[in-house]
């Protein structure tokens, strides 16, 4: 039996995170931990700050208050050089792929390797083709980003995110635009990277069925706070208003479906009329 004090320190630790963007409170005391070697899903209603959380982990945003630690280092306290050193060890899959439009698929995946290593061209080519093979796009190596579909661009971005075999991969909506075959392969790839290389993964996604196949733990965020956490199966069956509404897809519940608006009948000019 592993004593709690012997357990490895979590790779990601967020404590009391408070964030305001454009006068709107995004996080109001968020706490969460991500264990090393785990696959963790962050879920929540749209606009709840899931992508913002990823931007905190990479130092793209600084918190108004609270602590964000990655691999034991306080991200907000890192110098520019320290931040870039940390980012070399993090892969990031952007929501809209963010491929460099001047470069071919091959050069997009090769870009981090060319910038940070002096690998011989043959070895670099082998690594890039291996990653493209993993996402099923080795044959598309010479295409330009403008020639790819949305799902293909996402898979190229995934190949680029994993090209360094980083310690942590952040996936922002990795399943959007993927057909069932590609979705299954991407799920298998995430799991394989996790099991064979021990890469920690954090996924921001809405596809519960896909997440249940791959995630060890789910964090449910709403209203700037963590409202539920647990293993996928346990959370999906938990009887709380948050999980019931979110996993059941119900309009009524603690998360309002409608954006705040004046009275509907009054706005339509129907108030006071008889049916």
């Amino acid at each position: 039996m592993i004593h709690p004090s012997d357990a490895p320190a979590p790779l990601v630790q967020v404590r009391g995170l408070r964030t305001r963007l454009g006068g709107k409170v995004i996080f109001d005391g968020l706490d969460l931990e991500v264990a090393r070697g785990s696959v963790t899903a962050v879920m929540g209603p749209s606009g709840t700050g899931k992508t913002t959380l990823l931007r905190h982990l990479t130092g793209q945003l600084r918190p108004a208050a609270g602590s964000v630690r990655v691999d034991g280092r306080e991200v907000a306290g890192l110098s520019r050089r320290g931040l870039f050193e940390l980012r070399e060890r993090i892969g990031f899959l952007f929501q809209n792929s963010a491929l460099l439009t001047d470069f071919s698929v091959f050069e997009n995946v090769a870009f981090p390797l060319r910038q940070h290593t002096r690998l011989p061209e043959e070895l670099l080519r082998d690594i890039v083709l291996t990653k493209l093979q993993a996402v099923g796009l080795r044959g598309a190596a010479n295409l330009m980003p403008s020639e790819l579909s949305g799902g293909m661009a996402r898979r190229v971005a995934l190949a680029r995110a994993i090209v360094f075999d980083p310690m942590l991969i952040l996936y922002d909506e990795p399943f959007v635009g993927l057909d069932p075959i590609a979705l299954n392969q991407v799920l298998r790839l995430i799991r394989t990277l996790n099991q064979t290389l021990g890469i920690t993964s954090i996924l921001v996604a809405h596809e519960l069925a896909a997440i249940r196949q791959v995630a060890d733990r789910i964090y449910l965020i709403a209203g700037g706070r963590l409202v539920a956490e647990g293993a996928p199966d346990e959370l999906a069956h938990r009887d709380s208003p948050w999980t019931r509404q979110f996993f059941g897809g119900e309009a009524d519940g603690p998360v309002p479906f409608h954006y705040p608006a004046p009275d509907y009948a009054r706005q339509l000019g129907l108030a006071g009329r008889r049916p």
């Binding site: 990479t58 793209q60 520019r80 870039f84 050193e85 980012r87 070399e88 993090i90 990031f92 952007f94 929501q95 809209n96 963010a98 491929l99 460099l100 439009t101 870009f111 981090p112 910038q115 940070h116 680029r160």
Partner: peptide, 17 residues
């Protein structure tokens, strides 16, 4: 357009200034 399509953020995230 690089800013609008997150390419600048992607470059920064790949530890390139």
């Amino acid at each position: 357009l690089m800013r609008a399509t997150d390419q600048l953020d992607a470059i920064s995230m790949m530890a390139v200034d």
